[in-house]
């Protein structure tokens, strides 16, 4: 089971004088249980791409296939697709409407016909996943929270539905560093324990390097790179050309190399880099 895109074009205002290719010839394969980053500058087609994954947009040409079903504008197919793919949009908190956080988070679950007990359980679990104490927060109004707390409630309301593919469009913009790390760490554990596939649209290269094993790089509506995150960030020139920037660990490895240091560190995640540095230091210590 997987998500697959075959030669997908999406044209805004097709046939009109201002027709505009938002996506052009996109072919992608996202495996079950992957943690994939989608990166690229503003206007490169990231949001348009993810809106295809649960049938909010339909390709002008080409197929979007979720678990071997082609996503089409048909009631039965859409119901099935949206049961599989959940999307957390940018500014999800703008869509709050309920009087309590419990009602807000429970809304989607109820739509899917969860029993009362299932709703209770899913809501509590989702709140814990985003690091908000259910006892304290569930009775409150979502409108009395800070921006960062609202974001986490919005993420919880999607996670609660228990879809197997979770797409997040810049979920950490505006979160403090501690909450950012907490939310992504919880998503990673959700991936490991429940085999949820996480698709993360992000402008933050440090978090992409830390959490995403693979990346899809978009530029002007086309895929300029798909593969291991490490391979992408090792190509500093490509990173620059696509309007992105190097994560801190890659900048650090490069800076060390440039000044001719004898310390050689591994890029990638924080732990990987610090472990390799620890090894270097203890080697030097023995000399």
């Amino acid at each position: 089971m997987s998500i697959e895109l075959k030669n997908v074009d999406y044209i805004y205002d097709s046939g009109e004088p201002f027709e505009y290719f938002a996506l052009r010839g996109i072919s992608l394969h996202i495996d079950d249980g992957a943690f994939v980053g989608v990166v690229g500058r503003t206007g490169s087609g990231k949001s348009t791409l993810v809106e295809h994954l649960n049938g909010l947009l339909f390709s002008t040409r080409g197929d979007v296939i979720v678990d071997s079903d082609i996503v089409r504008n048909e009631r039965a197919v859409l119901a099935k697709t949206r049961r599989r793919v959940g999307i957390v949009f940018q500014y999800p908190e703008d869509q709050f409407f309920a009087e309590t956080i419990f009602e807000e988070v429970a809304f989607g679950c109820r739509n899917y016909g969860f029993s009362k007990e299932q709703v209770e359980e899913s809501v509590h679990k989702a709140m814990n996943t985003v690091g908000l104490d259910p006892e304290r927060f569930l009775p409150l109004s979502p409108f009395q929270l800070s921006g960062g707390e609202q974001r986490r409630v919005a993420i919880a309301s999607v996670i609660a539905m228990g879809q197997k593919y979770i797409v997040l469009d810049e979920p950490t913009a505006g979160l403090d560093s501690g909450s950012k790390l907490a939310v992504l760490t919880e998503l990673e554990s959700l991936r490991q324990t429940a085999n949820v596939t996480v698709i993360l649209v992000s402008h933050n290269m440090d978090e992409v390097a830390e959490f995403c094993k693979e990346v899809v790089v978009l530029d002007e509506g086309t895929v300029t790179f798909q593969g291991s995150t490490d391979a992408f960030f090792r190509d500093a020139e490509l990173v620059e050309r696509t309007g992105l920037e190097l994560p801190e660990s890659y900048r650090l490895a490069r800076a060390l190399k440039e000044c001719g240091s004898t310390l050689a560190v591994n890029e990638g995640s924080t732990d990987r880099m610090l472990d390799s540095l620890r090894l270097c230091v203890s080697d030097l210590g023995g000399a």
């Binding site: 560093s177 610090l274 230091v281």
Partner: peptide
């Protein structure tokens, strides 16, 4: 402050062990 130490700072603390 809900901050996370920059990687370079964490690396510096590691260097201090030696």
């Amino acid at each position: 402050g809900g901050l996370v130490l920059p990687l370079s700072a964490r690396a510096s603390f590691l260097m201090r062990e030696r």
